[in-house]
Amino acid sequence: MQSLVIVAHGSHLNPDSATPTHTHADTIRATGAFDEVRTGFWKEEPSLREVLRTARGDDIYVVPLFISEGYFTERVIPRELRLEGWDPELWGSDGISADTATLVASDIDTEVHYCGPVGTHEAMTDVLVRRAESVTGDPSVGDGFGFAVVGHGTERNENSAKAIEYHTERIRETGRFDEVKALFMDEEPEVDDVADHFDSEDIIVVPLFIADGFHTQEDIPEDMGLTDDYRDGYDVPSEVDGHRIWYGGAVGTEELTADVILERAADAGADIGDAIARVRQRTKPTTQAAGD
């Protein structure tokens, strides 16, 4: 019996924090690729301490729904899951190349496959592009558009910036958008000055965050000048200094993120059949625009 366990941060304060986790779990559950799909949280229930005991499978894949490799994925989650013998070296990662480590979780005396976070998987690049399509309502968007991938910056985790740069470069390599740049909330180049960093009249802005919350719904829209007060909302696109800003909100809410979770599990050896293809088909973009 094959189980997927998605672990995420969650929040004591924001009910929307867990929404992407639950949504992607539902999407994957519907594919039937796993006998069960369970979710566990640092801040919500079931806790990371207890999530493995809710899983019934004997072949368990744990995928962190986190953006970067660092404190949570390398220290908190392995400790809370009680992965015996865990060492970040087992991922052999340079900060963006974590793969899988198979270890016994002493809570259930069973081996689990502990995967790298979704945020540093190459498939996350496709989700960023998919968000560009969904926020503009144009499946072929690219020509004439700039694309800004936004992250926290290095203040809290140096790998956070690495993940942003990694996907920025991958999008740039596709040649699809006129300009692609990494911007940050707490370091240069700052998202506050988004218009200064692009020549393109149209700029798509997508934060590499898992869930919408304080930063993506309040800070970034206000800092970019989309609105003076986030409670008043903002238009997509919004005019800022002669540019049209297409603000997409947290990329982790894009349905295609479920695909990255599947990719992580498949890389770790999960037998998921054609689930990836089906999720890609099922999550084709709608024409809704964020912020409406």
Binding site: P15, D26, E44, E45
Partner: peptide, 20 residues
């Protein structure tokens, strides 16, 4: 799995971070 959504907010619409 609808139970998850039913349990997210209380009768006054306040978030229930503690499910129990």
């Amino acid at each position: 799995f609808d139970a998850r959504d039913i349990g997210t907010l209380d009768a006054k619409g306040r978030y229930r971070p503690l499910r129990t």
